[in-house]
Computed example of a mutant assay.
Amino acid sequence: MVIYIDILLIENFIVNLFLLLITLKVLRYKYYKTIYIAAILGSLYTLVLFMNNKILASLPFKLIVVLLMLIVSTRSFKILRIVKSSITFMIMSFTLCGFTFAFSIMENYYSIFEGVKIENYSIKYLLISVMMLYIFIVRVSDYVRDRALVNNFIYDIEIINDKKSIFIKGLLDTGNALREPVSNLPCIIIESDFLNSFNIKSSDEFLIPYSTIGEEGNLKGFKTKEVRIRGEDKEWKDVEVIICKCKNKLSKENEFNALLSRGVI
Rank of each mutant, 00 (worst) to 15 (best):
F153Y: 13
Y155E: 05
F194L: 14
L178G: 10
L219K: 13
I168Q: 03
D193A: 04
I243Y: 05
I5D: 05
I5G: 09
V72L: 14
G175P: 06
N176P: 01
V182M: 15
R81F: 00
G115Y: 09
F89T: 07
F77C: 02
Y110N: 10
S85L: 02
K33Y: 11
K78F: 02
G115I: 04
K249S: 13
Y134P: 07
K117R: 14
E215Y: 01
K124S: 05
V144W: 03
I265M: 15
I190Q: 12
N176M: 12
G217D: 05
F194A: 05
N176C: 06
Y121W: 01
L126A: 13
E235F: 01
L178H: 02
I190E: 05
V264G: 11
S141G: 00
T74H: 00
L20D: 12
N152L: 08
E180G: 10
E255K: 11
Y110R: 06
E253Q: 11
I229W: 05
V26Q: 06
D146I: 01
A258L: 00
T100F: 05
L207C: 07
F50E: 08
G175T: 02
L21P: 01
L70F: 04
N52A: 13
M131Q: 11
F136V: 03
Y4F: 06
M131Y: 11
I14P: 07
R262I: 06
E253T: 12
Y4I: 13
F77M: 10
I35P: 12
L127N: 07
V264R: 09
C246M: 09
S251N: 07
I189E: 12
M69N: 03
Y109N: 14
L19K: 07
I128R: 07
R228K: 14
F113I: 11
S202R: 13
F256K: 06
M90P: 00
L260P: 06
N108W: 02
N199L: 12
I242W: 07
N254Q: 04
N184M: 12
K164H: 08
V182I: 14
I157A: 02
G231Q: 06
K117A: 11
V264K: 05
Y125E: 09
F198E: 11
F194H: 14
N254E: 07
N257V: 04
A258D: 11
S43A: 15
K62L: 00
R145A: 15
S202I: 13
V66Y: 10
L96T: 15
I265L: 15
D156E: 15
L171Y: 14
V66H: 03
T88V: 13
M69V: 04
I128F: 03
F136S: 14
D142F: 00
I168R: 04
Y45A: 08
E215Q: 15
L49A: 09
V116D: 01
C246H: 03
N12M: 03
S192V: 07
T95F: 10
I3T: 13
L24G: 07
I160D: 08
S43E: 09
D162P: 01
S76I: 01
W236L: 09
